[in-house]
């Protein structure tokens, strides 16, 4: 039996969903819920929700796709770099920081590229891995989650999300400097 940390993480990862399903269905059986009927009743909504998010997905992903393809992303990075130099963010990691709130696949691509070039166990590799893991694609989540319920005025959602992202990225930099270098 391999009890290394990596293996334990793997086991938790693999068993989380089956265990949650088992607990819910098991408790339902115990409470004499008509399991099959309930499941069907709930599952009916799946199609509607998925279809309802299409316009919002299109709007946000098209805009971000255009932004990346035009080369504007590179200019944005050049514009912000003096600021991030102040906190000691390595130039290579900056594109990840900027891409992360905008595009999940885009930032994962950048992270993979950096890990490939510098090695997964280098300071940069560890830093961009931490950055990727500790923040989310804010704009995607906002567009899709608000979109499904028809919210048009998002109030303080965008500034809150971005400040949290910035905090996460700066925290990632500080903790990685302490732990990995």
């Amino acid at each position: 039996m391999d009890l290394s940390f990596a293996n334990i993480v793997q086991v938790i990862s693999d068993s989380a969903i089956p265990v949650v399903i088992l607990l819910i269905v098991g408790y339902g059986l115990f409470k004499k819920v008509k399991l099959y009927e309930s499941f069907i009743d709930g599952a009916k909504g799946g199609f509607d929700v998925a279809i309802k998010i299409i316009p919002f997905l299109v709007a946000i992903l098209v805009a971000i796709g255009m932004f990346r393809a035009s080369g504007a992303m590179d200019y944005l990075i050049a514009l912000i770099s003096p600021l991030t130099n102040l906190v000691g963010m390595p130039a290579e990691a900056l594109p990840v920081a900027i891409m992360r709130p905008l595009s999940g696949s885009g930032s994962l691509g950048l992270v993979t590229e950096i890990i490939k070039t510098h090695g997964p166990d280098s300071f940069l590799g560890n830093l961009v891995s931490t950055m990727y893991g500790s923040t989310e694609t804010t704009f995607y989540v906002l567009a899709v989650y608000f979109g499904t319920v028809g919210i048009k005025k998002t109030r303080h959602a965008v500034p809150t999300g971005l400040i949290a992202d910035a905090a996460g990225l700066v925290a990632a930099l500080i903790i990685c400097k302490l732990v990995f270098s």
Binding site: I24, Y27, G28, V33, L35, S38, D41, G42, A43
Partner: peptide, 10 residues
Amino acid sequence: LGILKIAEDS
């Protein structure tokens, strides 16, 4: 959503 409905009903 199906699983959630079971959770809700139980």
